[in-house]
Design a protein around this nucleic acid. Structure first.
Lengths: 334, 334
DNA sequence: CTGAAAGCGCTTACAG
DNA sequence: CTGAAAGCGCTTACAG
């Protein structure tokens, strides 16, 4: 591997000057500067990341902790985050939480030794308050800590989120105004602030329409935002003899699960039951009937993350809360 | 941050001894060993990764380059790989290729400066031979280079793959023996060795059944393994008036796209047309009709990757080719 | 079995 | 504007 010293020798300067040129900080004689640049290019010099990070105390890696990389919500977000980090020369360390607080604990235990530039918590699961001290310690160490998807701003963590309650309300109001009710709500996920927010939107829409809340139409689930949660909810409702004209799911996976259950019980979508999902995952447009759902804007999240990283760099303030709107994407299912 | 020196002081030994105890290499006095372990635990010592890697010349990061993390094939594999790396104390650096040779080039240019322990190429796209020298250079540097999914063993890169041709043949034979033919083949992907292998399986099944190959039943696609490829293929076949009793797709996404097109043209699955996918992605069981497909075994791939890493470590040989079987998972679509 | 010392490849006060 | 020197936190011959 070529080192700064190789470049320095070739350019006839000291390694300090090479470093100064390459990092563009201090002023360097224009001519020497050119010679260094030329030498670096000729040798194909790439500064050793580990040495750079160790010495400067600032790594070039951003860790992203995701709830479950296999869910499209997280993989699509990861894709955008990686693209944005690549643009500013940072690496992405991916850590899959698998929805487990234990895995979060393990990561946080080793995080300080990683020399991270940033840490993005991308999960809808609750973050136990017991982790707050470690998180704060990391922040004090100069790392850019961000919550993606979940509001943690009141715990001192800048958060980039989508609107949930307003979006949920919009969708359910649409169903009611189209005459598709009663509306079954599938997925007030246990332990997820977001699931609760979406449910609040459902309640608000009902209240707005002067309809009363019925317990038999609301299905909690502990199995996160997965297909089976939607399947089970609809199956239980049908077996209980509950009548409903629509399903508002709190994720697209849940919506697809619900559609499968409706199909298996001979109900047609949207003729008998309208279905709306949440999150516009990649196959939502390709299933039949195509899924009506609430949009997601991973590009906006990634851009906000980039700003936060750049602001920290520049010493300017990072906003404590960035909220991104969602719109209803109408397809065939509702 | 606590350092080896802090631990050393507390244990009353030198930092060298601390290092020896923690790395479990050389023999250390049992008593001193215990004191070091106790001190490290009390201080919650975690060795600085960057210093460790810089000094030893062997990083603790494995980079995984994926075709497109948003596709379930890659995200599911990534999940398993991350789990396995975590078990052996290695970090996962994720790099999304986005099916672009330029991004691969960019990564390889900076790879040497990253001090990687391993590099997993997980893409079905062709790897230009022009990159072979860089790849070989990386291998010589002691990094464990692996191809996941695509055979590159003849170019000196140990490969962990699934059987493709035999699996494709198995599925198509099943269709033919069930009387579901002619069989349309959707997805002989341009520039993908794997797409070509699956297509060879199709041809072999036809030959085995004494059926002739018909050009009008074969649909190439440049759009990779995505939904639209399947939709377009079926739509073009129907518009051309081609009759067919089954679709063998070369990915599950293509199969879902094909099912959408069949639906939009009033063909019922499986009554009018049977459909088989490839890869058993996560929603394959949840769509309606549920998708019959060929299995995938990400756990086996991840386990083989782990062995390769451990073998390199131990100085024992890494097999040049590990091939994992696929079975036909029968669901409702065929 | 163990400590003192060197050094991985950088960056950054420091002195000029 | 620039070089010599120190040092980030480890590991590893080396000598004992």
């Amino acid at each position: 591997m070529t080192t700064v010293l190789d470049v320095a020798r070739r350019a006839g300067v000291s390694s300090a000057t090479v470093s100064r040129v390459l990092n563009g900080q201090a002023t360097v004689n224009a001519e020497a500067r050119l010679r260094v640049l030329a030498a670096a290019a000729e040798l194909g010099f790439q500064p050793n990341r580990m040495a750079q990070s160790l010495r400067s105390g600032r790594g070039r890696t951003v860790a992203m902790l995701v709830g479950d990389i296999e869910q499209n919500l997280y993989s699509a977000l990861t894709k955008h985050v990686q693209a944005v980090l690549g643009q500013i020369g940072l690496d992405l360390l991916l850590y899959n939480l698998d929805h487990s607080p234990d895995r979060l604990r393990s990561f946080l235990a080793m995080a300080p030794s990683l020399g991270l530039r940033g840490l993005a918590l991308a999960t809808t699961d609750a973050i136990p308050a017991a982790f707050d001290p470690v998180l704060q310690g990391l922040q004090r160490g100069g790392l850019t800590l961000l919550s993606l998807g979940q509001r943690l701003d009141e715990r001192g963590i800048p958060s980039i989120v989508h609107e949930e309650q307003a979006a949920g309300e919009r969708a359910v109001r649409f169903l009611i105004e189209s005459g598709r009710h009663p509306v079954l709500f599938a997925g007030r996920i246990t332990g997820s602030a977001i699931g609760a927010d979406r449910y609040r939107g459902y309640r608000a829409a009902l209240a707005g329409a002067g309809l009363s809340l019925r317990r038999d139409l609301i299905f909690d689930t502990a199995t996160a935002y997965r297909y089976s949660a939607g399947y089970d909810a609809v199956q239980r409702a049908i077996e209980a003899g509950t009548e409903f004209g629509a399903v508002q799911a709190s994720s697209d996976e849940i919506a697809l699960g619900a559609m499968a259950a409706l199909h298996d019980h001979g109900r047609r979508v949207p003729e008998d039951v309208a279905v709306i999902g949440f999150g516009n995952i990649d196959w939502a447009a390709h299933t039949r009937p195509a899924l009506t759902t609430l949009s997601v804007h991973h590009d906006a999240v990634a851009a906000a993350l980039r700003s936060a990283l750049e602001n920290t760099e520049a010493g300017t303030e990072v906003p404590m809360l960035v909220s991104i709107g969602r719109s209803l994407i109408r397809r065939a299912s509702a």
